[in-house]
């Protein structure tokens, strides 16, 4: 049985407090890239009762994604936007979702992200990460931005940190563990980094930023 919207909201208010839950429920968060970081971030903040997510990815679910990304084996081959839409609606049926199955580039960033209060950078390619971050910081200084760099391999999960670079720009990760160094991505460590990103997003919305 799927609980009613009223009952789910009451449960969230009981957990987070009515004031904070109102901030979560009225927030719009954009997740750029729906891989190991983005799919985990989206699920964590959807569970917390974020009102609306904007989900952006051009790619399809691949068998090599299943070890760390929040998709099911039966979703192999379909667009990540469509797969995550299904999964999120099963978890949080009353969330608002807007999906964009496309590559973000410098030309379309402004239009896609204009309604977001907070933007989560969750790409896997280093140059794409830098492009997105620079463009947002240069052209949308009013937005909060939570990026990630360095979460590959079997190093300690404790090396994953959140750093605040400017008032509105946070970055999570160890800053050095590159997937191209041959160590690959390990589900648990990527999830730690995604959890850092999700946690910063919730802290920003709750007004806890020290």
């Amino acid at each position: 049985m799927i609980p009613s919207e009223k009952d789910m909201m009451a449960a969230l208010e009981q957990r987070h407090g009515r004031e904070i839950q109102k901030k979560f429920s009225t927030a719009t968060v954009a997740v750029c890239g729906l891989g190991g970081l983005g799919s985990n971030v989206a699920i964590a903040i959807a569970r917390a009762g974020i009102g609306k997510l904007i989900l952006i990815d051009f790619d399809r679910v691949d068998i090599t994604n299943l070890h760390r990304q929040q998709y099911k084996a039966c979703q192999t081959g379909i667009y990540k936007t469509d797969a995550l839409y299904e999964n999120l609606k099963e978890i949080a049926p009353y969330i608002m979702l807007e999906t964009h199955t496309m590559r973000i580039n410098e030309g379309n960033i402004g239009e896609i992200l204009k309604d977001a209060d907070i933007i989560c950078e969750a790409f896997d390619d280093a140059e794409s990460k830098a492009m997105l971050v620079n463009k947002i910081l240069e052209t949308m200084p009013e937005k909060y931005l939570v990026a990630a760099s360095g979460m590959a391999g079997f190093d300690s999960a404790d090396n994953i940190k959140t750093r605040r670079i400017t008032d509105k720009f946070f970055i999570c990760g160890d800053g050095i563990s590159d997937v191209n160094d041959g160590i690959g991505l390990v589900s648990s460590r990527v999830m730690v980094c995604a959890a850092h990103q999700a946690h910063v997003i919730l802290r920003i919305l709750a007004g806890i930023e020290e």
């Binding site: 890239g33 891989g35 190991g36 970081l37 983005g38 969750a122 790409f123 896997d124 390619d125 280093a126 140059e127 990460k129 830098a130 971050v133 990026a147 990630a148 760099s149 360095g150 979460m151 590959a152 670079i165 970055i171 800053g175 050095i176 563990s177 590159d178 997937v179 191209n180 991505l185 990527v190």
Partner: peptide, 10 residues
């Protein structure tokens, strides 16, 4: 100055 450097993986 803070130089934020990105590595691959996500």
């Amino acid at each position: 100055v803070e130089v934020v450097s990105f590595v691959g993986g996500g």
